[in-house]
Design a protein around this nucleic acid. Sequence first.
RNA 1: GGCCCGUUCGUCUAAGGGUUAGGACACCACCCUUUCACGGUGGUGAUACGAGUUCGAAUCUCGUACGGGCUACCA
Length: 513
Amino acid sequence: MSKKVRVRFAPSPTGGLHLGGMRTVLYNYLFAKKHGGNFIVRIEDSDQSRYVAGAEEYIFNCLKWAGLEPDESAIHGGEYKPYRQSERKDIYKKYAEQLIKDGHAYYAFDTPEELEKMRNDFKSDHNHSPQYDGLVRMKMRNSVTLTSEETKKLLDEGARHVIRIKMPEHETVTFTDLIRGEVSFDTSLVDDKVLLKADGMPTYHLAVVVDDYLMKISHAFRGEEWLSSAPVHVLLWKYLFGINEMPQWAHLPLILGPNGKLSKRDGAKYGFPVFAMNWMDPKTNELVEGFKEKGFLPEAFINLLALLGWNDGTEQEIFSKEELIEKFSIERVHSGGAKFDYEKAKWFNHEWIKRLQISELPAGRQGLRFQIEAVFNAKGITINDSVKFEKIISLVKDRCTLLTDFYDQSYFFFITPEKWDVDAVKPKWSETKKLFFAELIRNFELCPDWRATILENNFKEITVVNEIKPGEVLLPFRIMLVGGKFGPGVFDIAEILGKEDTILRIKKFLEII
RNA sequence: GGCCCGUUCGUCUAAGGGUUAGGACACCACCCUUUCACGGUGGUGAUACGAGUUCGAAUCUCGUACGGGCUACCA
């Protein structure tokens, strides 16, 4: 019981890191940190045919962006290296052979063709997909049906073979899931899973058990899709290391899309990201948009992910990472799947944008200011005046839901409008208005104190003198400055723009109207 | 088909035998605002169905329906 908390996440470098994967990381991370333990990332790269170049690095970049960096991993180092499955082949082989010696596993020489034939032969309405189980086992070519001489001969000849677990007959395997409570299975209904493949690589089943033991993992949280293979893992623990050594498990519910299981297709279909960061599949050149690039703050991303299936029992919804670590408990995670709601996701981001201080982490590259600057840089705008930039941010902050909104809400501070919403002004344009703005220019030119409140007063005074309603010239004024019917308060805009630029924009518009 | 898991407003969820079933997102209305937002106030809206246990069930039990997962030499 005094065992140190060490939780493990094992991504497979086969593509982007989706919401479900990120939430699994998050819960693992939160639990580890809450208990002062270590968060370990082990890479599942044993299937080289599915392995995608660059995917491993991508996974770690996602974790870094979200602020969920592991304590131990192939790239961060650690005591229990190596952390890549493909680099631990010999270890798995040793344990697989020990299982055979103890009578819990056997060699199987069946070719893929023979397996396919078996599945066809045994297929019926009663049995959609026949399994390599206790019954079928006796009809196949393996070290259970073959004599030991025959087996030895095949092995000596170097015949291609796998090692399969020998599932016991009619045994009930029970384990306690931290979220679901007690779950039991009848071993007769589970097939003889392959443990070691013909190429010498382990399957997940063997690797996860061996690595969790060797890396002294105390807790492992994974997706619900693993629940049905849990009995295999329980048995392997029992055979290899003793059931008492087995880590505590929690099977997390799936995150659903608008129509069932969340897929990367849903992103394109419904216009929301499903991956943490942009993922370009080098095989297909298909780009799947990420939350980062879409304009999400890592703080908001973590927050919304954590709340998708968990809450602390109060009505609080906005949590910082530190608060999540403090309040998270795996027992309060839901057992039912949650449908992802992009509108709510955006709300979280909006809340975080409103909350974060502009000057936060000014020296780092992670602060809000830096992230917004990056948005402008991406649009080809360089920020020269830092003071002005921060003023702009505070002015438009409340109206931005995504980081990219900062550009749409304030680009006009950096780019003088070339096109104006003339239609909104022209029909009601008059000589009186023309005179008003001429007067306004004169007044502004002489204005000694360029502040929004003063500008507003001057503006109103001139409307009185010219016998014109403020409402009639306010909109044209706005369009002169920004080009259209949008943006924050006009006088605030004018203040930031400065005297010279403001007057220039009025003049420019007067020329074309 | 078999096995496993699940089911409270449209969505995320609270309520662990006794609440007018609470909150948030979205939606609608009003207020604020001489642009658009933000914000404020209010409103519509849920215990899948059927039995049972109980004085009393969203809550416990069973059945049904529906949804999901697994059923690979993928993870």
